[in-house]
């Protein structure tokens, strides 16, 4: 499958995990990697080019750190501008139907923060509901998100494990070796689940 990674991170100088993940993703063969903040530093998104990219790929990966329980501002701008009526939705807008979407996110809060009885009062996938519904409205399949919790408080080993597993995930998606039927049954998945989910 043809993979498009849309990476949105407004403060890459302060990033510890995401830029390392991005660097790995960039190096994976057959993956189109787009650094949205680098291409549109002034938020003037080239709608035609973005729509062309969407059409040319089968899997759309949104890679971003969660900011205030949501996507970074430019990724929201991207949704507002690119997913046009008549292209992505509406009676004539079926151009994205059948594609897969996957959010690969990192959070500052820990797994226990993201729980009904945790500080954030909801599990993490609830906060991604706008993205999920957007995908569904456009006729795409929304896969459970690939999540790294506590991204700012990881030890080296934990960070490396996630960073290394990200290109593995992308490669498995591309070669259709990711066990999608198992993934669909999970609320979210992480780097430690890949051992079971990736077929050799």
């Amino acid at each position: 499958m043809r993979i498009l990674v849309l990476f949105a991170h407004p403060a890459q100088r302060k990033s510890s995990i995401n830029t390392a993940m991005a660097a790995r993703a960039r190096a994976v063969d057959g993956v189109t990697f787009v650094d949205l903040y680098a291409e549109y530093p002034r938020f003037s998104i080239d709608v035609d080019r973005e729509q062309r990219r969407l059409i040319e790929h089968d899997v759309i990966v949104f890679q971003f750190p969660v900011f205030w329980y949501s996507t970074p501002a430019l990724l929201k701008q991207w949704q507002d501008l690119v997913l046009e009526y008549g292209f992505a939705y509406g009676p004539q807008g079926k151009k994205l139907a059948g594609k897969l979407t996957l959010a690969c996110i990192t959070t500052g809060g820990s797994r226990s923060d993201y729980a009904e009885d945790g500080g954030n009062r909801r599990v993490v996938e609830h906060f991604l509901y706008p993205l999920e519904q957007t995908a569904i409205l456009c006729g795409m399949e929304y896969l459970p998100p690939f999540v790294l919790y506590s991204a700012n408080h990881l030890d080296d080993a934990g960070a490396q494990h996630h960073i290394q597993s990200y290109p593995r995930l992308l490669t498995a998606l591309r070669e259709e070796r990711l066990d999608l039927s198992s993934v669909r049954l999970m609320p979210t998945f992480g780097s430690f689940d890949l051992t079971d989910l990736v077929r050799d």
């Binding site: 998104i45 709608v47 507002d80 501008l81 690119v82 046009e84 009526y85 008549g86 939705y89 509406g90 009676p91 569904i136 409205l137 006729g139």
Partner: peptide, 18 residues
Amino acid sequence: ARGWNAPDASSIHVPRSV
């Protein structure tokens, strides 16, 4: 104005299966 054009509200179809 591109991208902020409001569609005709009646024409948005939420897929039935959802």
